[in-house]
């Protein structure tokens, strides 16, 4: 598990370094995610030199147990919101209405576009569970 955690951190660190060194308009962790994806793809090609943890499913288990509690990780920032509710209150209900309506519109627009293009490109509605 420590190897897996180390790899996640290493990818993030490299992501942060790349983002800064090349002034990429992307957050370091997202570049780290791409690096981890490359690492996983590479693992299939050069199985002999990859560490045990990358092949026996430990990385998968570690990642899944972090992602299963993704909600927890937003809690500290969320508590910060409670402390700054004054920012919200000064602009009254207008912001709440804008957030609510805009989120509904954005969700529906994204969903409809995805389905429309999927259908146009002859997609047989995969992803049904």
């Amino acid at each position: 598990m420590i190897v897996s955690l180390g790899l996640l951190l290493l990818c993030q660190l490299l992501g942060e370094v790349l983002a800064r060194a090349l002034s990429l308009p992307l957050p370091g962790p997202i570049i780290g995610m791409m690096l981890m994806l490359c690492l996983l793809l590479l693992r299939d090609k050069v199985a002999a030199i990859t560490p045990q943890e990358l092949r026996d499913g430990t990385l998968e288990t570690t990642s899944q147990s972090i992602l299963a509690h993704l909600s927890l990780l937003f809690v500290p920032a969320g508590v910060g919101v409670v402390q700054r509710l004054d920012l919200f209150i000064t602009h009254g209900a207008a912001l709440v209405v804008a957030l609510l309506l805009s989120t509904i519109l954005a969700l529906l627009a994204g969903l409809a576009t995805f389905r429309l293009i999927a259908r146009l490109t002859g997609d047989k509605a995969e992803g049904r569970e």
Partner: peptide
Amino acid sequence: LGPATVALAV
């Protein structure tokens, strides 16, 4: 949050 974002690769 950072390592979790990287973990999305899995």
